[in-house]
Design a protein around this nucleic acid. Structure first.
Length: 216
DNA sequence: TGTGTTGTCTCCGCGTCGGG
DNA sequence: CCCGACGCGGAGACAACACA
């Protein structure tokens, strides 16, 4: 592969684009914001990326210090990619970029949002509450994908792929399309639940409270 | 040792850009 | 406008590794 193009500009924006400006790079980072992923997991989340391009991007991001590769302990013993502390600082930037992109005036919204994207949409559109009594652990299931979310005193403090360490107070079980409609305010919660495409379990009030706090 | 998984390498086509 | 250089990305082959 040829040498990477650089802007040769001391401006922070140009330096950031030297690191992040290649095709697929931001989407790889987006998918890693919710936790470590294996090479095949990243491929599954980005089905149009070829293995060599993914391999190349991962290596570039490792060399840039954005992510690191780690080998899981046995019996898994597989290698996963995860953001470094510096790479994880991109979380609010990616969220802001997602919000900005969702308001694009010229490009039609095409393609189905995947689980990772939906969860990041929930995070970026979450409206913090001043309710000091609102603290809850949530389990969100989007098809086969499971995510753990924690709200403490009305603030969304954690969102990660996989089941939470402790028991969840409420569970939200749905599919990609339904959650996408809800996030985009193209369907209300009552319709989603009434149609059976969304199930709320455990503390239903807490689940409703969470869903009322998200969306564009 | 065979098989599946994970990741890399090589080759090639296509698009872009700059010089003549 | 033409042509060559260069960069990007995809397909397929291949290597390294883990595990049964």
């Amino acid at each position: 592969m040829a040498a990477k193009r650089r802007y040769d500009d001391g401006c922070g924006v140009a330096l950031a684009m030297d690191v992040l400006g290649e095709r697929w790079t931001m989407l790889i980072i987006r998918d890693l914001l919710l936790g470590p992923q294996r090479f095949v997991d990243l491929q599954a989340g980005l089905p149009d990326i070829s293995p060599n391009v993914l391999s190349h991007r991962l290596r570039e991001l490792q060399e840039s210090g954005v992510l690191q590769r780690r080998t899981l302990p046995p019996p898994a013993a597989s290698r996963v990619y995860e953001l470094t502390d510096w790479g994880a600082e991109l979380a609010p930037i990616v969220s802001a970029l997602g919000l900005w992109g969702s308001r694009t005036p010229i490009m039609p919204r095409t393609g189905e949002m995947r689980a990772n994207s939906l969860m990041l949409s929930l995070r970026s559109t979450f409206s913090p509450s001043d309710e000091p009594d609102w603290s809850a652990n949530y389990e969100i299931r989007i098809g086969a994908d499971i995510f753990a979310v924690r709200v403490i005193s009305g603030r969304l403090t954690e969102m990660a792929r996989g089941q939470a360490a402790g028991p969840a107070d409420a569970a939200i079980i749905t599919d990609h399309k339904t959650l996408g409609l809800l996030v985009n305010h193209e369907e209300d919660l009552e319709t989603s639940v009434g149609s059976g495409r969304m199930t709320l379990a455990g503390d239903v009030g807490a689940a409703r409270r969470f869903l009322a706090a998200v969306g564009l």
